[in-house]
Design a protein around this nucleic acid. Structure first.
Lengths: 113, 113
DNA sequence: TTGGAGTATCGTAAAAATACGATTAAGAAA
DNA sequence: TTTCTTAATCGTATTTTTACGATACTCCAA
């Protein structure tokens, strides 16, 4: 047996040089935030919220070249990833950054790399 | 005309509170890095390279639960995003982090949020 | 109440990402 | 050379993401 192992690997894998301070649930949440951030439209939404705090969904819809339904969908992704929070304000929803989460994200990026 | 504009928006869009130091090409590169980072398998590759510097493709393939072709594909994504660099070492390819890019990424995350 | 404004969700079509086996290519060893 | 090791690329099936119109739902005003 042992057919799957590579032959002629004299060197093998280099020894571990360090450990990383991320795994499990934290890692999942971090990856969800990265993934959510990786879309141009969603990044545009975050930029808009960063520079125009206190916006409602409609403001964001007007600002983007996509349909209302799609915008709402992207907002949900950002919400689920933890980037933003939505507060109901009458019939509208007022979105803002989740400052704690953003701070956590920044910290983590600094720690990991 | 003006049929698409929202009525009853007395408040309008909140005034811009600040500017962001990212746009255009820089933003595209940043988003590519975020997107690449957002995949569990690719993050696993980065973690492996972080903790085991000097690995070749085969080491990474052995470490992941996916096929060689898929791993190679993910490595290409990370390479194109700028996270890693591959150096040819005989028949093998030795991968390492692109330290400059990583530093740039960290800096940017600190600036944006 | 009733009506309309503001949003979220549903259902679905199109596009993109993911994964794999097979193949190709390039270097090292025989 | 010929062969083997290593890794990238090709073609393709499957899954996920994206985007939209239509619909449902909530709140406020008339």
């Amino acid at each position: 047996m042992a057919s799957k192992t590579r032959t002629r690997v004299a060197k093998g894998i280099p020894a571990s040089c360090c450990n990383l301070a991320i795994e499990g649930e934290s890692q999942e949440q971090f990856l969800a935030m990265c993934k959510a951030l990786g879309s141009p439209l969603r990044f545009e939404i975050l930029k808009f919220l960063l520079t125009h705090p206190g916006c409602i969904t409609g403001n964001i819809v007007d600002h983007l070249p996509i349909a209302q339904a799609t915008t709402s969908q992207h907002l949900a992704v950002l919400r689920n990833a933890g980037w933003i929070e939505g507060a109901v304000d009458g019939p509208a929803t007022c979105y803002c950054l989740n400052e704690d989460r953003v701070a956590w994200f920044k910290e983590l990026v600094g720690e990991i790399f």
